[in-house]
Each structure stands twice: as C-alpha cells, then as structure tokens.
Design a protein around this nucleic acid. Structure first.
Lengths: 353, 353
DNA sequence: CTGAAAGCGCTTACAG
DNA sequence: CTGAAAGCGCTTACAG
C-alpha cells in the first residue's frame, strides 16, 4: 500500500540545510568573506557585502548561533532568575530588564526558583552549559556566597536584585527597605495609630529583616514598645494576605492598623477585612509596599511605598551589560530611595469593639 | 605602581577550561568513552563509568551544550511566546508548561510579544538560530499562517495555545470560549437581567470573536435583541477595566449586568463601580472569565467561568514533547469545556436610576 | 579586499 | 567494552 508522506518535502529541506558554505559556493567566494559580510564587516567591499546579504535573504539562510558561539564563546544569552516571574513585583522589574537587554540584542532566559535552592542551581547549571554571558538574579532563600562565586569563577558574571547575599562580591540593586517601611510606619503613627501590626514577610531574606527592622525602628523612635504579638509573619501573596485577615483580627489588643509586607498582602488583607464586615481605610488602616499598578485602583486605593522597581531592573541590566563589555563595575551601595504614596486605605485611628 | 589584579586567578581558570579531553587525558581513556560514560551509556563498563563520573564531578567539569547541540542538532531548548507572561491568565498556563517541560529536562525560553508581530518574529528567529527543539505560542494578533509554516519548514515544530491561526496546520489547545461565555450570559439571564453589556475584548483574535459571538448567541436564544451600544470593546487588563467603568455607566439604557472579557477586566470594573458609589453584585452584576486564583478573593467574590488554563498548558506541552519524540500528533479539535463558578458578584437584576 | 585552514568541544559511526 | 577520526557550522588569525 502506498502511504503518502507529508513530511518528505520538509525532510528534504532539512537535509540540504543552508549554511555559510552554501552561500559561499553559490557566489564563488569563501566562507570567511560571507561570514564577515553578514556581520557588516568593513573588511568586505560594499558591493560584495550587498550581494551576499541579498542572496542570504533570498534563500532563507538561518544563522547558526550555536556554531558561532562555540567558536567565539559569546552566546548572546543572559539568564534572569527570580522567585516567581508571575509576581507583579518582579513583573515590573523584568519589563525594564527586557527593555535594556532588547536594546543590546541579548536573548534572555527566565526562570523561577520558587525559593528552592535546587531549582536555582539547576538553572545556573543550564546557563553555564549554554555558555550564557551573564545572569541577573534575586537569590533564593539560603543561597550561599559560594554558589555565586562558583558561577563567577566559571565565567558567568552575576548581578543581584532585590535581595543581598552576605559575602558575595557582586553588584546588588535594591531599594532602601528599612527606610521605606519607616515612611509607612511614621505615616500611620502621625494619624494617631499606636497599636500597629506588621503583616507578612519572613526573616529568612535580607529584605524581610530590613523591613521588619524598619518598622521596629520607627515605632521606637515614636516611643512605642513593639509587641511581638503584633507580627503576623509569613504571607507574601494576595491569597496569603486574604487568609491572614482572621489572624490579624484575633490579635488580643486589636491593632488599629497594619503595615503590610507588600501590596499583594495588603490588597489580600483588605479583601479579607471587607469579607469580615470591616471597611479598610476606615475601621482598619492598611499600608502596602511596592506601589504596583494595581495599588491605585484597589478598593480603597492603597497607601503604599514606591520601591523603584523600574529603576532596579534598569540599573541591574545596565551594570551587567557594562561588565560584558569589559567595563569595570564598582559595587554600588547606593540603595534606591523609596517614596510614600498616600491614598485612601489609611485614616485616623479608630477603636474597634 | 603595583596594582593587584583580582581577576587574574579567574582568568587563569578560564584559560585552562575543563573539557572532555581533559578528563580523558587524566584517566587515560578516549573522549568517546568519557562522552558515553557521562551520558550513562550501557556501552561503557560500570566501573569505568563511575570512575569517569566521579572525576568529572571532582574537577568541576561543565558540559558544553553548544558543542553537543551543534553535533546532534538537538538543543534541549523549547520556546514559549505569549502576549504577556506577567498576565495571570498566562501565568497559570506557564506554570503547567513549566512542570511538564521540567520533567523532560527541557530548558524553556519565554518571551512576550505584546501583540507586536515584529517582536514575535524576532523571537522565532532567535529560536531558529539557537536550534530550539520546538515552540509553544499564543500567536500575536495578525500572525499569518505562513509564519508558522516557515518555522515548521525550518525544523521548529509549533503548538498553539489560547488562540487559533486560520490555515495553520498545527495543534491548538484552548477552551470552548463561545460555550463558556454562553454559560455566564445564561446565568445572568436566569437572574432576570435583560440589558446585559459585554465589556472588553477585541474582534481581532479568534478568542475575541468567539466570546462575543457566544454572548450574542445566548442573548438570542433568550429572545433578547442585542444592542450594539451594549458593547464596550477594548479592555483586557485590570486597569483598562477600571477605566471602562464610566463608559459602562454612560450607556443610555443602563444595563443591569456586565459580561466581562476576563477576570482582570471584571475586577477592574468592579473597583471602578465601587469608586462610583455602586455595590458590585448588588447594583450591577458582573461576570468574569478564567477563574484566576484572585477571582475567589475579590470583593465581592467573582462569578466567573473556569477556562482550564492548567489543562491547556499541560496538553500543549505534552503534545510538543510527543512530537519531539517522533510520535504522530493528530490535530486535536476537542476544545476544553469551561465551567461556570457562581459567587457573589451576580444577583437579581435591579434597576438603577 | 579575499581565501585556505585551523579549531571551538562535543558525538557518532566504524573498527577492533 | 574501548579508541581514532571525522564532522556539526561557524570565526579568526594568517597569508597574499
């Protein structure tokens, strides 16, 4: 029985794959000339160059980056690894990284580590195997400085964002978290709040420690003793913030306000409070952190701290590109200075029954 | 003046890069044996294999995938391109794709095309240059079937998700949108609504056309003539939904309900309605589409249509992996059947003044 | 301005 | 079970 094979034409095409030498043969020049012409080298005569480029286009030549990269040991690939790319906080950082890298025609490979060290290591390994030119990372909880040193030693430059790693001698770009949370806390205190809870976050990251400490410092500056019971540790997502509402409401001396870990937790918490019959911004004041696009359209509009995400992404990408181009990058320690954006989710302190 | 050079040690390491032959020389075997041993080939004696693997680990050998891929023409890379990876709708699909691909140790490269054909083409080109094994894509608006055929002809298998491309003979995985919107519309009609608006979406995508048509068909089945003025076309994000609230409220005959393009638009619209002093779910009924995690914690909890995102991602990844493994994949036309999830954002029709 | 040749680091027939 | 050798498709000194 005759079975027609629809893949035959395709396979034939694959068999006679077009490469540099195909063009060279057709035009009676060497592959060296073709290679140089396609990359716009001034070493090739203008007319030759145009003839080659035109022919390459006509026959549908596809540049083989693996081969080139094997030869040059430059891959044009940059890795980006964060806790969760779907988190809107990282989303804004990623967008600005994307903008910068696109401009330099670097391909970027994204990955989530979900704070699992093993996932992060697998990804770093993949980058090394692919010969990536560099990596921008928000390190997973527990990342040892040695992991970063190992990447650097194998020719993979690292730039950190959002979180620091003690002992790693690479650039870090992030906001001044302690200062930022201080702004939110000061604001609540100025509205008459004294019993202020801190909802969300963990001590396992530099960011988590900085933010909690910023809250404690602000309270102490105002002469308020912080009750450890006011801390609802853990939540970092909208859902977790929502589910934390009962825990917040169960705190014995009923705090009148909550400084939240980030906007997601704040919005989740506000939804949880609303579900419990309270009016956020009136019965309980709530602050967020990050100033996501969503913060201004939440109900009520969220008072929050702008965290300079765009700036973090932009500076990190620039620093990496500078390193790739051989520039000396000095370790920056100028944290980005956050700003308080006051909206409707905070108001005068009101006692609940 | 003596200037210490901290990069020297690093550069030396790079210079004496470890490769297969380094191991072969050290152990007195051939590179062929090392290559086979590292990939657990049964052709190599167990003891030899262990000795080689142990040594490779000890000296920190890094497998060069570019070299291997150049030889085998298999890269272990799969591309994924969608409108916007930061959109929670795609986020859920991506997570299930990630799970499937991780299992097969494929690296995936993500990219947004933001519905710009040029961005999509650049990315497809990059995939071809990197020798990617395949691509999963939600095609940008206006993608011609020829673009997909070109990729396929160059050995890059394509699987589509969420949107169809007329004339492209590749597998497509998506939900039954017309049916799903019908469920939401029927539900509103059963609550006594007659003037129902459709907020968001565009006719430029197959999804957009299907959803609008599903709404029209449901209305007609109930004997309701659809007023073109009830359509607020365009919005697809939370912010756009929020900003569409005034347009919705300005519709002359004051619809009592809104079928929204997706959950983001619905949540944004509800926030906008609340800002205007209305209570969503009471004054105006609102339905979403997708059933994002967020839908159930919105205020009020959103009545929406579950769209099988996980399933879309899982099936698409499986189909691509099957193709890579040489299996014949028949074009599926079994759309995923959506389900209505009723919550608090819909209620009996109430006339507004 | 152009060409011949070596080499990047693997894998795969092939031979033994 | 193991080795010698060719080749994947580029780029880069080097020579002319």
């Amino acid at each position: 029985m005759f079975v027609p094979d629809p893949g035959a034409a395709r396979r034939i095409k694959l068999a006679q794959k077009i490469k540099l030498s195909t063009i060279a043969d057709a035009l009676g020049v060497s592959t060296a000339t073709v290679s140089l012409a396609l990359r716009d080298s001034p070493l090739v005569a203008g007319s030759t160059r145009e003839r080659i480029k035109e022919h390459a286009r006509a026959i549908g030549y596809i540049y083989n980056r693996r081969a080139a990269s094997l030869r040059t040991s430059r891959s044009g690939i940059v890795g980006v690894v964060v806790h969760d790319i779907m988190n809107p906080f990282f989303a804004e950082i990623l967008r600005s990284i994307e903008t910068e890298l696109d401009r330099s025609r670097q391909t970027f490979i994204l990955s989530n580590h979900y704070d699992q060290l093993e996932k992060q290591r697998t990804f770093m390994d993949t980058l090394l195997q692919l010969g990536a030119d560099g990596v921008i990372m928000s390190p997973a909880i527990g990342t040892p400085a040695a992991d970063i040193g190992m990447a650097e030693d194998n020719g993979l430059p690292v730039v950190l964002i959002a979180r620091d790693v003690v002992g790693a001698e690479v650039p870090v770009f992030r906001g001044n978290d302690a200062f930022g949370v201080g702004l939110a806390t000061d604001h609540l205190i100025s509205l008459g709040h004294r019993r202020i809870a801190m909802v969300g976050g963990t001590d396992q990251t530099s960011t988590g420690r900085d933010r909690y400490q910023g809250y404690v410092a602000a309270m102490e500056r105002a002469g308020i003793a912080v009750d450890p019971g006011w801390r609802v540790a853990g939540p970092r997502t909208k859902l977790a913030g929502f589910e934390a509402a009962p825990r917040f409401l169960d705190i014995a001396d009923k705090p009148t306000a909550a400084v939240c870990w980030n906007d997601l937790v704040a919005i989740g918490l506000m939804n949880g409070l609303a579900r419990a019959g309270l009016v956020p911004g009136v019965d309980v004041s709530v602050t967020g952190y990050d100033d996501l696009e969503e913060a201004s359209i939440a109900t009520p509009a969220l008072t929050t701290v702008w965290n300079g995400q765009r700036e973090v992404g932009r500076r990190a990408a620039r620093a990496l590109l500078d390193r790739l181009n051989g520039a000396t990058v000095h370790l920056p320690q100028d944290l980005i200075t956050p700003e308080l954006h006051v909206r409707q989710s905070t108001g005068q302190a009101i006692e609940r029954n």
